Simulated scan of single mutants.
Amino acid sequence: MVLDLTWRDLARKLADSLEESEDLRSPHWRKALEETPRHLFVPSYYLAQDGIPTPWKLVSEVDGKEWLEPIYTDRTLVTQFEGGGVELASGLRSGIPSSSSTQPSLVIRMLELLEVRETDHVLDLGTGTGYQTALIAHRLAGSQQLVSADIDPALTSAAAGTLARLGHTPQLRAVDAMAEEWGCTFDRIIASCALPRISGSLRSAVREGGRLIANLFPPLNHTLVVLDHQPNGCLEGRFHGDGGSFMTARTGTPPKAGDSKGSAYSSGTTSIPQAAFDSYHFQFLLAAHLPGAELQYGSEGSATMRRLVLPGGEWAEATYNGSKPPTWSEAGGEGVWETTERWWKWFNDHDQPTWDRFGLTITPEGSHVLWFEEPTGADLWALV
Protein backbone atom coordinates (compact mmCIF):
# COMPACT_ATOMS: atom_id res chain seq x y z
CA MET A 1 0.00 0.00 0.00
CA VAL A 2 2.85 2.40 0.84
CA LEU A 3 4.47 1.83 -2.57
CA ASP A 4 1.09 2.25 -4.26
CA LEU A 5 0.57 5.63 -2.59
CA THR A 6 4.15 6.69 -3.32
CA TRP A 7 4.17 5.96 -7.05
CA ARG A 8 0.78 7.60 -7.55
CA ASP A 9 2.00 10.77 -5.88
CA LEU A 10 5.16 10.71 -8.00
CA ALA A 11 3.12 10.13 -11.17
CA ARG A 12 0.94 13.16 -10.39
CA LYS A 13 4.06 15.29 -9.90
CA LEU A 14 5.43 14.06 -13.23
CA ALA A 15 2.16 15.01 -14.93
CA ASP A 16 2.33 18.43 -13.26
CA SER A 17 5.85 19.02 -14.59
CA LEU A 18 4.86 18.00 -18.12
CA GLU A 19 1.92 20.39 -18.01
CA GLU A 20 4.26 23.18 -16.90
CA SER A 21 6.58 22.43 -19.83
CA GLU A 22 3.49 22.40 -22.11
CA ASP A 23 4.28 18.93 -23.42
CA LEU A 24 1.10 17.63 -21.74
CA ARG A 25 -2.12 19.39 -22.76
CA SER A 26 -4.94 16.82 -22.87
CA PRO A 27 -6.88 15.53 -19.84
CA HIS A 28 -6.96 11.98 -21.23
CA TRP A 29 -3.16 11.79 -21.45
CA ARG A 30 -2.83 13.23 -17.95
CA LYS A 31 -5.19 10.53 -16.69
CA ALA A 32 -3.14 7.87 -18.50
CA LEU A 33 0.08 9.18 -16.88
CA GLU A 34 -1.45 9.23 -13.42
CA GLU A 35 -2.93 5.74 -13.67
CA THR A 36 -0.08 3.88 -15.43
CA PRO A 37 2.63 2.55 -13.07
CA ARG A 38 5.82 3.11 -15.06
CA HIS A 39 7.84 1.26 -12.41
CA LEU A 40 6.21 -2.05 -13.38
CA PHE A 41 7.81 -1.74 -16.82
CA VAL A 42 11.32 -1.05 -15.49
CA PRO A 43 11.95 -3.44 -12.57
CA SER A 44 15.61 -2.66 -13.23
CA TYR A 45 17.48 -0.15 -15.36
CA TYR A 46 20.83 1.63 -15.64
CA LEU A 47 21.78 5.10 -14.36
CA ALA A 48 24.66 6.93 -16.05
CA GLN A 49 27.66 7.69 -13.85
CA ASP A 50 30.53 10.13 -14.37
CA GLY A 51 33.29 8.94 -16.69
CA ILE A 52 34.40 8.54 -20.31
CA PRO A 53 33.17 6.30 -21.80
CA THR A 54 30.02 6.47 -19.67
CA PRO A 55 29.82 3.78 -16.98
CA TRP A 56 26.32 2.64 -16.01
CA LYS A 57 25.03 1.50 -12.62
CA LEU A 58 22.29 -1.11 -12.44
CA VAL A 59 19.46 -0.22 -10.04
CA SER A 60 16.44 -2.36 -9.18
CA GLU A 61 13.56 -2.65 -6.76
CA VAL A 62 15.91 -3.62 -3.91
CA ASP A 63 17.42 -0.11 -4.16
CA GLY A 64 14.19 1.51 -2.96
CA LYS A 65 13.96 5.26 -3.55
CA GLU A 66 17.13 5.30 -5.69
CA TRP A 67 15.28 3.02 -8.11
CA LEU A 68 11.70 4.37 -7.78
CA GLU A 69 12.07 8.15 -7.80
CA PRO A 70 14.00 8.54 -11.11
CA ILE A 71 11.29 6.48 -12.84
CA TYR A 72 8.79 9.29 -12.29
CA THR A 73 11.05 12.05 -13.57
CA ASP A 74 11.46 13.22 -17.14
CA ARG A 75 14.33 10.98 -18.11
CA THR A 76 15.07 8.10 -20.45
CA LEU A 77 15.86 4.89 -18.58
CA VAL A 78 18.34 2.57 -20.30
CA THR A 79 17.36 -1.07 -19.90
CA GLN A 80 19.59 -2.97 -22.32
CA PHE A 81 22.95 -2.76 -24.13
CA GLU A 82 24.11 -4.13 -27.47
CA GLY A 83 25.49 -7.60 -26.82
CA GLY A 84 24.81 -7.14 -23.12
CA GLY A 85 27.56 -4.54 -22.75
CA VAL A 86 30.78 -5.06 -20.79
CA GLU A 87 31.00 -5.48 -17.03
CA LEU A 88 33.69 -3.28 -15.51
CA ALA A 89 35.92 -4.10 -12.55
CA SER A 90 33.98 -1.53 -10.52
CA GLY A 91 30.82 -3.56 -10.95
CA LEU A 92 29.42 -0.97 -13.35
CA ARG A 93 28.74 -1.64 -17.04
CA SER A 94 29.72 0.05 -20.29
CA GLY A 95 28.25 -0.31 -23.74
CA ILE A 96 25.92 1.08 -26.39
CA PRO A 97 22.29 1.26 -25.20
CA SER A 98 19.92 -0.80 -27.38
CA SER A 99 16.63 -0.46 -25.50
CA SER A 100 15.12 1.99 -23.04
CA SER A 101 12.00 3.48 -21.55
CA THR A 102 11.75 6.77 -23.42
CA GLN A 103 11.76 10.20 -21.77
CA PRO A 104 8.12 10.85 -20.76
CA SER A 105 8.03 14.39 -22.23
CA LEU A 106 8.93 13.02 -25.67
CA VAL A 107 6.40 10.20 -25.38
CA ILE A 108 3.61 12.59 -24.40
CA ARG A 109 4.60 15.18 -27.01
CA MET A 110 4.31 12.54 -29.73
CA LEU A 111 1.04 11.18 -28.39
CA GLU A 112 -0.43 14.69 -28.31
CA LEU A 113 0.64 15.16 -31.95
CA LEU A 114 -0.82 11.79 -32.88
CA GLU A 115 -4.31 12.90 -31.75
CA VAL A 116 -5.48 9.39 -30.84
CA ARG A 117 -9.24 8.94 -30.55
CA GLU A 118 -10.94 6.28 -28.43
CA THR A 119 -12.17 4.45 -31.52
CA ASP A 120 -8.87 4.47 -33.43
CA HIS A 121 -6.85 1.43 -34.42
CA VAL A 122 -3.21 2.11 -33.54
CA LEU A 123 0.14 0.61 -34.50
CA ASP A 124 2.88 1.20 -31.92
CA LEU A 125 6.38 0.51 -33.29
CA GLY A 126 9.24 -0.10 -30.87
CA THR A 127 7.49 -1.75 -27.92
CA GLY A 128 10.57 -1.67 -25.70
CA THR A 129 9.47 -1.93 -22.08
CA GLY A 130 5.81 -1.49 -23.05
CA TYR A 131 5.18 1.71 -21.07
CA GLN A 132 4.15 3.76 -24.10
CA THR A 133 1.98 0.85 -25.25
CA ALA A 134 0.21 0.99 -21.89
CA LEU A 135 -0.46 4.73 -22.22
CA ILE A 136 -1.99 4.19 -25.66
CA ALA A 137 -4.06 1.22 -24.43
CA HIS A 138 -5.38 3.40 -21.61
CA ARG A 139 -6.71 5.85 -24.21
CA LEU A 140 -8.47 3.29 -26.45
CA ALA A 141 -11.89 1.73 -25.97
CA GLY A 142 -10.42 -1.77 -26.21
CA SER A 143 -7.07 -3.57 -26.37
CA GLN A 144 -8.04 -5.23 -29.67
CA GLN A 145 -7.58 -1.83 -31.32
CA LEU A 146 -3.83 -1.82 -30.60
CA VAL A 147 -0.88 -3.64 -32.20
CA SER A 148 2.60 -3.14 -30.75
CA ALA A 149 5.76 -4.46 -32.41
CA ASP A 150 9.43 -4.86 -31.59
CA ILE A 151 12.13 -6.90 -33.29
CA ASP A 152 13.25 -8.40 -29.95
CA PRO A 153 10.94 -11.26 -28.84
CA ALA A 154 12.28 -11.05 -25.28
CA LEU A 155 11.03 -7.47 -25.06
CA THR A 156 7.58 -8.17 -26.50
CA SER A 157 7.19 -11.17 -24.19
CA ALA A 158 8.10 -9.20 -21.08
CA ALA A 159 5.92 -6.27 -22.13
CA ALA A 160 2.94 -8.55 -22.78
CA GLY A 161 3.15 -9.90 -19.23
CA THR A 162 3.30 -6.47 -17.63
CA LEU A 163 0.50 -5.12 -19.82
CA ALA A 164 -1.70 -8.07 -18.88
CA ARG A 165 -1.21 -7.25 -15.18
CA LEU A 166 -2.83 -3.88 -15.93
CA GLY A 167 -5.69 -5.45 -17.90
CA HIS A 168 -4.30 -4.57 -21.35
CA THR A 169 -4.13 -7.32 -23.96
CA PRO A 170 -3.01 -5.72 -27.24
CA GLN A 171 -1.53 -7.82 -30.01
CA LEU A 172 2.26 -7.98 -29.52
CA ARG A 173 4.41 -8.90 -32.52
CA ALA A 174 8.12 -9.70 -32.57
CA VAL A 175 8.85 -8.58 -36.14
CA ASP A 176 11.02 -6.30 -38.27
CA ALA A 177 8.74 -3.28 -38.44
CA MET A 178 10.40 -1.99 -41.62
CA ALA A 179 9.60 -5.17 -43.54
CA GLU A 180 6.45 -6.56 -41.90
CA GLU A 181 3.33 -6.83 -44.03
CA TRP A 182 0.67 -5.86 -41.50
CA GLY A 183 -2.35 -7.23 -43.34
CA CYS A 184 -4.50 -4.31 -42.26
CA THR A 185 -4.45 -0.53 -41.98
CA PHE A 186 -4.36 1.76 -38.96
CA ASP A 187 -5.80 5.17 -38.10
CA ARG A 188 -2.67 6.10 -36.18
CA ILE A 189 0.93 4.85 -36.33
CA ILE A 190 3.67 5.94 -33.93
CA ALA A 191 7.31 4.86 -34.28
CA SER A 192 9.40 4.99 -31.11
CA CYS A 193 12.55 4.02 -32.94
CA ALA A 194 14.46 6.10 -35.49
CA LEU A 195 13.78 5.14 -39.12
CA PRO A 196 16.04 5.90 -42.10
CA ARG A 197 13.00 6.15 -44.37
CA ILE A 198 9.31 5.15 -44.33
CA SER A 199 9.22 1.67 -45.85
CA GLY A 200 6.61 0.58 -48.38
CA SER A 201 4.90 -1.81 -45.95
CA LEU A 202 4.68 0.88 -43.30
CA ARG A 203 3.39 3.47 -45.77
CA SER A 204 0.64 1.14 -46.96
CA ALA A 205 -0.43 0.51 -43.35
CA VAL A 206 -1.69 4.08 -42.91
CA ARG A 207 -5.44 4.20 -43.41
CA GLU A 208 -6.97 6.88 -45.65
CA GLY A 209 -7.19 10.01 -43.50
CA GLY A 210 -4.79 8.44 -40.98
CA ARG A 211 -1.65 9.84 -39.38
CA LEU A 212 1.90 8.56 -38.88
CA ILE A 213 4.49 10.14 -36.60
CA ALA A 214 8.10 8.99 -36.82
CA ASN A 215 11.64 9.94 -35.99
CA LEU A 216 13.75 10.12 -39.17
CA PHE A 217 17.34 10.33 -40.51
CA PRO A 218 19.48 8.50 -37.92
CA PRO A 219 22.19 8.29 -36.84
CA LEU A 220 23.30 11.84 -37.74
CA ASN A 221 20.04 13.59 -36.90
CA HIS A 222 16.78 12.68 -35.20
CA THR A 223 13.79 14.72 -36.32
CA LEU A 224 10.08 14.16 -35.75
CA VAL A 225 7.81 14.27 -38.77
CA VAL A 226 4.00 14.22 -38.65
CA LEU A 227 2.57 12.74 -41.86
CA ASP A 228 -1.10 12.67 -42.80
CA HIS A 229 -2.60 10.40 -45.46
CA GLN A 230 -3.85 12.70 -48.23
CA PRO A 231 -6.76 12.05 -50.65
CA ASN A 232 -4.21 11.59 -53.47
CA GLY A 233 -2.60 8.69 -51.62
CA CYS A 234 0.50 10.61 -50.48
CA LEU A 235 1.73 10.86 -46.93
CA GLU A 236 2.57 14.50 -46.28
CA GLY A 237 3.41 16.77 -43.37
CA ARG A 238 5.93 18.94 -41.57
CA PHE A 239 8.83 18.26 -39.30
CA HIS A 240 8.14 19.23 -35.70
CA GLY A 241 10.04 22.10 -34.14
CA ASP A 242 10.87 20.32 -30.87
CA GLY A 243 12.60 17.35 -32.47
CA GLY A 244 13.21 14.18 -30.50
CA SER A 245 15.69 11.35 -30.43
CA PHE A 246 15.30 7.57 -30.44
CA MET A 247 17.60 4.61 -30.89
CA THR A 248 17.84 3.52 -34.50
CA ALA A 249 15.42 0.76 -35.43
CA ARG A 250 17.05 -2.64 -35.55
CA THR A 251 16.32 -4.58 -38.69
CA GLY A 252 16.58 -8.18 -39.78
CA THR A 253 18.60 -7.16 -42.85
CA PRO A 254 21.14 -4.47 -41.83
CA PRO A 255 23.10 -2.86 -44.69
CA LYS A 256 26.58 -4.16 -45.35
CA ALA A 257 29.40 -1.78 -44.56
CA GLY A 258 31.77 -1.00 -47.41
CA ASP A 259 35.47 -0.23 -47.48
CA SER A 260 36.93 2.89 -49.10
CA LYS A 261 40.54 1.65 -49.11
CA GLY A 262 42.18 2.26 -52.42
CA SER A 263 39.40 4.55 -53.62
CA ALA A 264 39.72 8.13 -54.81
CA TYR A 265 41.18 10.59 -52.30
CA SER A 266 40.98 14.38 -52.50
CA SER A 267 41.51 17.39 -50.24
CA GLY A 268 41.42 21.19 -50.08
CA THR A 269 40.53 24.15 -47.87
CA THR A 270 37.07 25.07 -46.63
CA SER A 271 35.13 27.98 -45.14
CA ILE A 272 32.78 25.75 -43.12
CA PRO A 273 33.36 26.54 -39.42
CA GLN A 274 33.68 23.83 -36.82
CA ALA A 275 30.50 25.09 -35.12
CA ALA A 276 28.49 24.18 -38.23
CA PHE A 277 28.65 20.52 -37.28
CA ASP A 278 27.11 21.29 -33.88
CA SER A 279 23.97 22.76 -35.49
CA TYR A 280 21.10 20.28 -35.31
CA HIS A 281 19.43 22.09 -38.19
CA PHE A 282 22.46 21.80 -40.49
CA GLN A 283 22.86 18.18 -39.40
CA PHE A 284 19.25 17.66 -40.49
CA LEU A 285 20.06 18.71 -44.07
CA LEU A 286 23.16 16.53 -44.20
CA ALA A 287 21.29 13.54 -42.77
CA ALA A 288 18.53 13.89 -45.36
CA HIS A 289 20.96 14.00 -48.28
CA LEU A 290 23.66 11.66 -46.97
CA PRO A 291 21.54 8.66 -45.84
CA GLY A 292 23.04 6.74 -42.94
CA ALA A 293 25.85 9.24 -42.38
CA GLU A 294 27.47 9.25 -38.96
CA LEU A 295 29.30 12.25 -37.48
CA GLN A 296 32.53 11.41 -35.67
CA TYR A 297 34.60 13.72 -33.45
CA GLY A 298 38.37 13.48 -33.12
CA SER A 299 41.57 15.31 -32.26
CA GLU A 300 45.27 15.02 -33.02
CA GLY A 301 47.64 17.30 -31.18
CA SER A 302 46.19 20.80 -31.33
CA ALA A 303 43.92 19.96 -34.28
CA THR A 304 40.30 18.87 -34.04
CA MET A 305 38.38 16.91 -36.66
CA ARG A 306 34.80 16.40 -37.74
CA ARG A 307 34.31 13.35 -39.94
CA LEU A 308 31.23 12.21 -41.85
CA VAL A 309 31.21 8.46 -42.52
CA LEU A 310 28.69 6.77 -44.83
CA PRO A 311 27.51 3.14 -44.53
CA GLY A 312 29.45 2.22 -47.66
CA GLY A 313 32.74 3.36 -46.11
CA GLU A 314 33.02 6.71 -47.91
CA TRP A 315 34.07 9.56 -45.65
CA ALA A 316 34.85 13.26 -45.58
CA GLU A 317 36.69 15.10 -42.84
CA ALA A 318 37.30 18.72 -41.84
CA THR A 319 40.36 19.63 -39.76
CA TYR A 320 40.59 22.74 -37.57
CA ASN A 321 43.96 23.87 -36.22
CA GLY A 322 44.02 27.25 -34.51
CA SER A 323 44.34 30.22 -36.86
CA LYS A 324 45.26 28.07 -39.85
CA PRO A 325 42.66 27.82 -42.63
CA PRO A 326 40.43 24.76 -42.12
CA THR A 327 41.14 21.90 -44.50
CA TRP A 328 39.09 18.99 -45.76
CA SER A 329 39.85 15.57 -47.15
CA GLU A 330 37.73 12.67 -48.33
CA ALA A 331 37.94 9.14 -49.66
CA GLY A 332 35.41 7.12 -51.58
CA GLY A 333 34.79 9.26 -54.63
CA GLU A 334 31.14 9.84 -53.71
CA GLY A 335 31.27 13.63 -53.34
CA VAL A 336 30.55 13.64 -49.61
CA TRP A 337 32.40 16.91 -49.07
CA GLU A 338 30.86 18.55 -52.15
CA THR A 339 27.44 17.71 -50.71
CA THR A 340 28.46 19.17 -47.35
CA GLU A 341 29.73 22.42 -48.94
CA ARG A 342 26.62 22.75 -51.12
CA TRP A 343 24.21 22.40 -48.22
CA TRP A 344 26.23 24.70 -45.98
CA LYS A 345 25.90 27.40 -48.66
CA TRP A 346 22.17 26.76 -49.06
CA PHE A 347 21.71 26.77 -45.27
CA ASN A 348 23.36 30.18 -44.95
CA ASP A 349 21.71 31.64 -48.05
CA HIS A 350 18.36 30.87 -46.39
CA ASP A 351 19.30 32.33 -42.95
CA GLN A 352 19.97 28.95 -41.33
CA PRO A 353 16.34 27.74 -41.18
CA THR A 354 15.09 25.48 -38.42
CA TRP A 355 13.76 22.04 -39.32
CA ASP A 356 10.11 23.00 -38.70
CA ARG A 357 10.25 25.01 -41.92
CA PHE A 358 10.70 21.77 -43.84
CA GLY A 359 8.24 19.06 -44.73
CA LEU A 360 8.12 15.67 -46.38
CA THR A 361 5.92 14.10 -49.05
CA ILE A 362 5.94 10.35 -49.63
CA THR A 363 4.25 9.35 -52.87
CA PRO A 364 2.17 6.17 -53.29
CA GLU A 365 5.17 4.74 -55.16
CA GLY A 366 7.41 5.39 -52.15
CA SER A 367 9.43 8.40 -53.36
CA HIS A 368 10.50 10.69 -50.50
CA VAL A 369 10.44 14.39 -51.40
CA LEU A 370 11.81 16.91 -48.93
CA TRP A 371 10.46 20.45 -49.27
CA PHE A 372 11.11 23.88 -47.80
CA GLU A 373 8.20 26.05 -46.63
CA GLU A 374 5.54 24.59 -48.95
CA PRO A 375 5.08 21.21 -50.70
CA THR A 376 4.41 23.01 -53.99
CA GLY A 377 7.19 25.57 -53.60
CA ALA A 378 10.41 26.03 -55.55
CA ASP A 379 12.68 24.15 -53.11
CA LEU A 380 11.99 20.43 -53.52
CA TRP A 381 14.49 17.59 -53.32
CA ALA A 382 14.01 13.91 -54.08
CA LEU A 383 15.76 11.86 -51.41
CA VAL A 384 17.65 8.68 -52.16
Rank of each mutant, 00 (worst) to 15 (best):
V2I: 14
L3F: 11
L18R: 11
D23V: 02
L24D: 00
W29Q: 04
H39G: 07
L40W: 07
L40D: 08
S44V: 07
D50E: 15
T54W: 12
V62A: 14
V62Y: 06
D63M: 08
I71T: 12
T73S: 14
F81W: 08
G83M: 05
S90Q: 11
S90T: 15
G95W: 06
V107H: 10
R109F: 02
E112K: 04
L113S: 10
L114H: 04
R117H: 13
D120E: 12
H121P: 00
V122K: 02
L123T: 00
G126R: 01
T127E: 01
Y131F: 10
R139K: 12
R139C: 09
S143Y: 07
Q145S: 08
L146C: 08
A149R: 05
D152M: 13
G161A: 11
A164W: 09
T169A: 13
Q171T: 15
M178E: 15
E181Y: 10
P196V: 13
R197Q: 13
S199T: 01
L202W: 04
G210D: 10
R211M: 13
L216H: 00
N221R: 03
V225G: 00
H229F: 04
R238D: 08
F239Y: 01
S245N: 09
M247R: 06
T248I: 09
R250G: 15
P254K: 05
A257F: 12
D259T: 07
K261C: 09
S271H: 10
A276Q: 00
A276L: 07
A276E: 00
S279C: 11
H281G: 03
P291R: 02
A303L: 05
L310I: 10
G333L: 03
W337Y: 08
W337M: 02
W346L: 06
H350R: 14
Q352G: 09
G359H: 00
P364Y: 02
S367T: 11
V369Y: 11
F372S: 01
T376S: 14
G377N: 09
L380V: 09
W381E: 13
L383S: 03
